[in-house]
Computed example of a mutant assay.
Amino acid sequence: MNRIALLLRGLPNSGKTTTAALLRNQLTPAVRISNDSVRYMAQPRDFSAFTIEASELGCLDLAISYLDSGFTPVIDGVFEDTDFLDAQHLRFRRKGLRLVTVTLMGGLDDLMDRNSSRDPLARMDEDRMRELHAQFRPGGLLLDIDGKQPEEVADDVLDLLELTSQGEEEEAAAAIDADVLFLRHGAPDYPQDVYPDPYGMGLSERGRDEARAARHAVERFVPHVVYTSDFLRAEETATLAAGPLGLDIRRDAALRERVFHTLAGTGLAEVRTLLGEEAERVLNGNSDLCEHGDEETYEQARERVLTFFGKLAALHAGQRVLVVGHGGPHAWLVEKALGAQMRGIRRMRWDTGHFSRFRVGPDTVSVDFINRSPEDIARSPRPVKEEP
Rank of each mutant, 00 (worst) to 15 (best):
S48V: 04
S48E: 07
S48M: 03
S48N: 10
A49T: 12
A49V: 11
T51F: 05
T51L: 08
I52Q: 12
I52W: 09
I52N: 13
E53F: 10
E53D: 10
A54W: 08
S55T: 00
E56Q: 04
E56T: 02
L57W: 10
L57N: 15
G58A: 15
G58H: 14
L60V: 01
D61I: 09
L62S: 13
L62M: 10
L62G: 02
L62V: 07
A63Q: 02
A63V: 00
I64H: 07
I64N: 07
I64D: 07
I64W: 08
S65H: 15
S65W: 07
S65L: 10
L67T: 04
D68F: 08
D68S: 12
D68K: 09
S69A: 11
S69T: 09
G70L: 06
G70V: 00
F71E: 06
F71C: 10
F71G: 02
F71V: 03
T72M: 05
V74P: 04
I75T: 08
G77Y: 03
V78A: 01
V78F: 00
V78P: 01
F79I: 01
F79Y: 15
F79R: 00
D81L: 08
D81G: 06
T82G: 12
T82H: 12
T82M: 11
T82Q: 13
D83A: 14
D83S: 14
F84S: 03
L85E: 03
L85I: 01
D86L: 09
A87H: 14
A87V: 13
A87N: 11
Q88V: 04
Q88F: 10
H89V: 13
H89G: 11
L90S: 13
F92M: 06
F92T: 03
F92A: 06
F92W: 12
R93H: 14
R93W: 10
R93K: 15
R94V: 06
L97Q: 07
R98E: 10
L99T: 00
L99V: 06
L99H: 04
L99I: 00
V100H: 01
V100P: 00
V100W: 02
V102F: 01
V102P: 02
T103D: 09
L104E: 04
M105L: 15
G106M: 01
G107C: 11
G107K: 07
L108F: 13
D109R: 08
D109I: 08
D110P: 09
L111S: 02
M112S: 12
M112T: 15
M112Y: 12
R114C: 02
R114I: 02
N115F: 11
